[in-house]
Nucleic acid binder design. Structure first.
Lengths: 159, 159
DNA sequence: CTTATTGCAAATAATTTGCACCAGC
DNA sequence: GCTGGTGCAAATTATTTGCAATAAG
């Protein structure tokens, strides 16, 4: 979490114009610990700057996330995806083709659970992110590593 | 992943009617390793059973997931949520009120990465799921632990 | 026979897009 | 002044819902 002056510098370094809206949106994220939705940020910012538009909030959040100035809590957010396997296991997610592979690994199922504020943990899942073999090799530079939503193909099935 | 006869028994045990559609959908999940979307399953099943409807696929997947006969890859799927913090960290997700809390824990940042099929892992995130303190105590039996999408409130902010 | 489930069509909700105007540099 | 960013309204996409017809137990 950067201070506002640092955020402004960071925008400049990345070639992003520094606008009032971007600053307001970043400030809104700074002041909540909520992991807010676009709507929530929109309402929050609107209180101080009523002319902001929801579309701007969406666009800004995407832009900032692409430039790693903020994070997106759920990278696979666009489509609900299901899994026949109900055992505890973990996932490898290809950031390019969005293929998901299963990881069954006993060691990863034995983590020491963190403790925080009386939260009662009943399970956990780990999402490993990166590039699958196909996308490292076959993709001829047409990668989109920034967590966006570009491809629809899942690299086929079994193969 | 159950065999079809076991799936049928499991449905009966849970009081779910065993329908042709449910079996086809489950079979489709069995035969792919794709973590498919509802659309993908719809197309797959439609090939063998053209009269199936997309709404049925959505309903069936939700039903099976609620009864733990299948899993949902992304439990926080319904809304995109953002985070001002770009350091590696992990999340506690309350399955009831959908509040998300941050976990910064050095040990959790040092996992041994699994290896699989040439996949190149660049980062990972752990999502711990359970009930926050508020929801364990204050909620008077009105819990919805089955990964559904019920509440809209995020239990307020700082508090 | 009774209730749960299906399938259709219409509704809703989240997010994206096109485009004209405006602001940052 | 040039280019990227904003705001509006309309479009798109995923998902849900109401309801009558049908199948499961």
């Amino acid at each position: 979490m950067l201070t506002i002056p640092d955020f402004i510098d960071a925008c400049r370094e990345k070639g992003l114009n520094v606008t009032y809206q971007r600053i307001m949106i970043y400030k809104s994220l700074l002041r909540t610990n909520n992991h807010p939705t676009a709507e929530a940020i929109y309402h929050d910012v609107k209180a101080e700057y009523p002319s902001i538009s929801l579309a701007t909030v969406y666009k800004t959040l995407e832009t900032l996330a692409e430039h790693d100035l903020i994070g997106k809590v759920t990278p696979l957010h666009d489509l609900a995806r299901y899994d026949g396997d109900t055992q505890q296991h973990h996932h490898l997610v290809c950031l390019n083709c969005r293929k998901i592979m299963d990881i069954h690994d006993e060691q990863l199922n034995q983590l020491n659970l963190p403790r925080k504020n009386g939260f009662h943990i009943s399970s956990y899942r780990i999402q490993f992110e990166g590039l699958c073999d196909d996308c490292q090799h076959r993709s001829n530079g047409r990668l989109k590593t920034a967590g966006g939503k570009e491809q629809t193909t899942f690299c086929g099935k079994g193969a």
